[in-house]
């Protein structure tokens, strides 16, 4: 079975449309979406309507959650004052723009999806706000995959596509009974973790890989082959709409250069507990 995984559309309808056309050309049997349908971009309602009308299984992203629950990100999840102010502007604009049915759709999205040995989340299995970067510590990365019970974990949120193999994972656990500090009673156990894989689908609507092209992934369940797809779209249309609809024009400038609207957090593993 061949599937397509898309993520982080961020109200960019032009990019979504082009990616769906590209997916059509590859004759996939199922599309999964990893959330962040809204936020920053000019067409949150149209994007949600498209996803809903195509009945694409979708999990909830951090922006989707914030629009439903109210802005919950703490200031330490932003890398700078400027990013925080821009994030708040985008949130307020989106909050005003979306229709009640859009909000209702976002509210009922699950946090994760399963399909056999595949699991789909937005950030990580623990939070929509956690960044699983490609250089995340191997132990932590392995824990995240094991937490799902799946062999392949699809995630988004970082906007940078990658495939990471976690193979031949050797875990050693030493347990001390603590009876005596002189001669602790220790038991050591060794585990071999089976091959696991993390696939980041990148971003359809807000690429952060230095080019303007939308990204998504194709996955062949038979061969386990992952293909990272990069799709050109008319980003200038989206940029024009950003300005026309009253979003900050700096968003258009950044999108046109393959820059993220707001940079990722300094501590990408930080999860707000507020």
């Amino acid at each position: 079975m061949k599937i397509a995984v898309i993520s982080c559309i961020h109200g960019n309808y032009e990019a979504l449309n082009e990616v769906l056309l590209d997916i059509d050309r590859h004759q996939v049997e199922q599309i999964y979406c990893l959330g962040d349908l809204v936020g920053y971009g000019p067409y949150p309602n149209a994007v949600v309507e498209m996803i809903r009308s195509l009945d694409i299984p979708t999990c909830q992203g951090c922006w989707d959650e914030d629009v439903v629950e109210g802005l919950n990100a703490c200031e330490c999840s932003y890398p700078s004052l400027l990013a925080e102010k821009r994030g708040r502007l985008a949130h307020e604009w989106t909050n005003q723009e979306i229709h009640p049915e859009t909000r209702s759709f976002l509210a009922q999205l699950p946090l994760s999806l399963r399909d056999g040995n595949l699991c789909f989340v937005h950030g990580s299995p623990h939070s929509q706000h956690e960044y699983m970067l490609p250089d995340m510590h191997a132990f932590t990365a392995m824990e995240r995959v094991l937490a799902t019970g799946a062999d392949t974990l699809f995630c988004g949120h970082t906007h940078i596509p990658y495939v990471r193999q976690l193979e031949s994972g050797q875990l050693q656990v030493r347990v001390s009974s603590g009876q005596s500090s002189q001669r602790p009673n220790q038991q050591t156990s060794n585990f071999s973790a089976p091959l696991k894989r993390i696939v980041n689908a990148g971003s359809v609507g807000e690429p952060r890989h230095g080019r303007t092209n939308a990204t998504y992934v194709l996955y062949d369940a038979e061969t386990e082959q992952v293909t990272l797809r990069e799709v050109e779209y008319d980003y200038q249309k989206t940029c024009a709409a950003i300005v026309e609809k009253g979003l900050p024009s700096i968003f258009a400038w950044r999108l046109a250069r393959g820059l993220e609207f707001a940079e990722r957090a300094d501590d990408p593993t930080h999860v707000c507990e507020r």
Binding site: P79, S80, L81, L82, A83, E263, D266
Partner: peptide, 8 residues
């Protein structure tokens, strides 16, 4: 804020 300054 230094990070903001470098961005702007």
């Amino acid at each position: 804020d230094f990070a903001s300054l470098t961005t702007v």
